[in-house]
Simulated scan of single mutants.
Amino acid sequence: MKVLLVNGSARLKGCTYTALCEVAKTLEENGIETELFQLGAKPICGCIGCMSCRKTGECFMNDKVNEFAKMAKEADGFVFGSPVHYASASGALTSFLDRVFFSAGANLSYKPGASITSARRGGTTATFDQLNKYFTINNMPVVSSQYWNMVHGNTPEETLQDLEGMQVMRILGKNMAWLLKCIELGKQNGIGIPEREEKVATNFIR
């Protein structure tokens, strides 16, 4: 079993990375393989609604979205991490997730997802809420911890001093590992994903 952890910060080894590493370390200790996916500092364009992905199965923009989508198909779980920018996820991660879930949401469906947020001070809960909405519109179990998944600090060193936040990251890793093992045990005993209904779309303005 494998979990992909996405660093939505332009800083490769900043506070978000520090928190993700704590989750990854705990997952590894519990027998789950991990891989860190760095968005990096290159611009990621937002979705333009061209619908070409509906025909080709991938986004026409040749960047990290398609790279991740292919990896996601083979992954069993996901953790998306973001710094807080104006009480929201980073612009790069938001654009990335919009396009990933629109063009390749099926590669993530029914697989556990978790989000973590990093801030100097405020905006974490709003960002946490934003990120979790991607999971709950895509049939993904949401993995929780003993508190909202957030860390505080202005530097990686300060983040490590947030003892409660780092503990939350470890508990999150344990809970993710536990859920993945439960799902795998269910598969071995003939329990598959729920039967899907044909989607009903209701327009509020006619």
Rank of each mutant, 00 (worst) to 15 (best):
A75N: 10
D76S: 12
D76T: 02
D76Q: 05
V79N: 03
F80V: 15
F80E: 04
S82P: 08
P83Y: 02
P83W: 00
V84Y: 02
H85F: 14
Y86M: 14
Y86W: 13
A87Q: 10
S88Q: 14
S88E: 09
A89P: 04
S90F: 03
G91N: 07
G91H: 06
A92D: 10
A92T: 09
L93S: 06
L93N: 04
T94L: 12
S95P: 08
L97P: 10
V100M: 06
V100S: 05
V100E: 08
F101E: 07
F101A: 07
S103K: 04
A104R: 04
G105C: 03
N107E: 14
N107M: 08
N107H: 12
L108P: 01
L108H: 01
L108M: 13
L108A: 03
L108T: 06
K111W: 00
G113N: 08
G113P: 06
A114F: 01
A114H: 02
S115L: 04
I116N: 06
I116R: 05
T117F: 02
S118N: 07
S118A: 15
S118M: 09
A119K: 00
A119M: 11
R121V: 12
R121K: 14
R121I: 13
R121H: 15
R121L: 12
G122C: 12
G123H: 00
A126H: 14
T127L: 11
T127A: 11
T127I: 03
T127C: 15
F128P: 02
F128A: 11
L131Q: 05
N132H: 10
Y134P: 06
F135G: 03
T136C: 13
N138Y: 03
N139D: 15
M140F: 05
M140N: 10
V142N: 07
